[in-house]
Write a protein that binds this DNA or RNA. Sequence first.
DNA 1: ATTTAAACTTTGTAATTCAAAGTACTTTTA
DNA 2: TAAAAGTACTTTGAATTACAAAGTTTAAAT
Lengths: 98, 98
Amino acid sequence: MKSYIHNLNKAFENRIRLGIMSVLMVNDSVDFSTMKETLELTDGNLASHITALEKEGYIHVKKEFVGKKPLTTYSVTKLGMKAFNDHLDALEKLLKGR
Amino acid sequence: MKSYIHNLNKAFENRIRLGIMSVLMVNDSVDFSTMKETLELTDGNLASHITALEKEGYIHVKKEFVGKKPLTTYSVTKLGMKAFNDHLDALEKLLKGR
DNA sequence: ATTTAAACTTTGTAATTCAAAGTACTTTTA
DNA sequence: TAAAAGTACTTTGAATTACAAAGTTTAAAT
């Protein structure tokens, strides 16, 4: 009866990155401000966790101008979906004691 | 649509402490060696995470001699059960996007 | 000219994590 | 009886992570 803790993804251990992924799994794309308010984070904190997930290839960052204002939007990649689902599987198995 | 990430319990963010709690939620008591092997940890690493959970009052540590050998067994406290269930609730709500 | 807004980046400190080594006591083995 | 092994840690130290606060950039609005 080995444990599943080592199948958990380190990238999703942090609550903020877990939150970002959760939000992106149910929303096609979310912009910087919305994400910041949803998760109640400071600018810098959000930016750094976003960078971490982007480096793993789990999210895509799109920068554009809408009207005259810059707009940054995030979306989850296929790799990110796979990784997140695998993480949730491991989590579920761990919590169910198998 | 506020996020639930701030209802997650910091004590259970780490995979090892999450593993310890999961094991103790489905087993009345588990000894040091069994826990160590189940979670595939080094002595020191297990000991330090156990201490962290004990300090929070989430687990109880019992030391005794069985035959001539020392035996340390762990069990979850009522407070620990409550805290862990609250954490799982927050996790579930977060992941379901509510 | 100053302020505001969006989205960061940088800085610095504090906390966390973990392996490895060391400790203490006891028992078994050579 | 001396050495090795077992149980359960504690300590040390280095690396990584986390986070707030402050600074930066570009452009628009006042």
